[in-house]
């Protein structure tokens, strides 16, 4: 099977990854070679086989789900890492676009 240019564009949109025209052309071929390889899994009989659990062993480290305060130095670093801010105000692009008038 082969991924079309439109399929690649659609996946890239879902993943929120901007691709150039040249990349849109190339990516399909690159993914095809991997998909062709992994298609060997279809030959394996998995009737009645359960999906592997996320963990190979029982998880051991559960803790109460309580809020843990962060110290001031952590807070300062979190704010410092924000890409755009003005004092303690953090800037992000608007989620809603301006309605057409």
């Amino acid at each position: 099977m082969s991924l079309t240019r439109e399929e690649v564009a659609s996946i890239a949109h879902l993943a929120r990854i901007g691709l150039s025209d040249e990349e849109l052309d190339r990516t399909g071929h690159e993914l095809d070679s991997v998909l062709d390889y992994v298609n060997r899994l279809q030959r394996i009989d998995t009737d009645g086989v359960p999906e592997a659990s996320a963990l190979p062993v029982d998880a051991g480290a559960f803790r109460p789900d309580v809020v843990d305060a962060c110290v001031e130095s952590e807070r300062a670093l979190i704010l410092q890492n924000f890409p755009a801010s003005s004092g303690d105000l953090l800037k992000a692009p608007a989620v809603f676009v301006q309605p057409k008038s």
Binding site: V8, I11, L31, L35, I44, T46, A52
Partner: peptide, 23 residues
């Protein structure tokens, strides 16, 4: 990321992810 988004997308999830987890 693109490969993962594809394998997890509607219509392909069973064929790729679910199958791989069984194997």
């Amino acid at each position: 990321m693109l490969l993962g988004a594809y394998a997890l997308s509607a219509g392909y999830y069973d064929a790729y992810y679910k199958k791989a987890k069984k194997v």
